[in-house]
Amino acid sequence: MIGKELGTNAPNTWCPGCGNFSILNAMKAVLAELSEGAPDLARTVLVAGIGCHGKIADYINVNSFYSIHGRATPAAEGIKIGDPGLRVICHSGDGDAYGEGLEHLIFAAKRNVDMTMIVHDNRVYGLTTGQYTPTSPLGFKGRSTPAGSIESPINPLALMLTSGATFVARGYSHGIENLKDIFRAAIAHPGFSFIDILQVCVTFFNQYEDYTARTYALENHDASDFDAAVKRAREWDYNSTDARIPLGVFYRHDAPVFEVNPADVGHKPAETRAELDKLLAQYR
């Protein structure tokens, strides 16, 4: 299966120049590679949140699940836990994943559910036409904050690292090869793989020139070193306008995943039952 065949007949309604296009193309290309040699992508499920980003589910011809705003993450967790044999890729937005449904993101990372979490971080609510989000900079003049937001942004990478995510990366929507590399690595990683993509929203927060000038590929970085990862993640706080912005895989670490046999993580129901029966027998 090649990238083109993964397309659908759904008319694309993203604005011309939207960063979502390169995310779509990179994902289609990587899925096409993954399907080589395999009969089809029937065991891949794409989960989407509600927002401009969510429409990606309409544009890729694999099984897909539209959740409700804020609940993309737990829906994806449920799908993976319900059938651990599935490859689950979740596309969410900064409003969806960092605002409306933030608690789920922390718990999916903490549990280390084996799924790929891709946040299209345009730092604005695109679909509802331009309000501030948890990653909008201080002073952001959006439609709900015309005088400028009075809140500082969160740093989603630092948050995910401290929440226990076992794979943490940052991409940029203008660099398709860089996105493909990250997607391949994230999908291959067993555990919760988190990717924050700086996705340019040309209509409501066009950061194209700024990002292009400030982003650079992480190098001389040991992705197995947690402290180094936190340090690199904090190079840019999603607010400052001069810090350089590293891209790539910040952290990768192997840990038991949630949906494997619970006996593997010390919980042994059969033995517990036997002990309980023995105890109860004394009172019969």
Binding site: G70, G99, E100, T128, Q131, R143, S144, T145, P146, A147
Partner: peptide, 26 residues
């Protein structure tokens, strides 16, 4: 409903009302 939120945010920004306006996270 969005237009109500946006219009009211404008009134706040222009100082036409003294309301504590909180665009919450959910």
């Amino acid at each position: 409903q969005t237009i109500i939120v946006e219009a009211y945010a404008e009134y706040v920004a222009r100082g036409e009302v003294q309301t504590e306006f909180v665009p919450a996270e959910s």
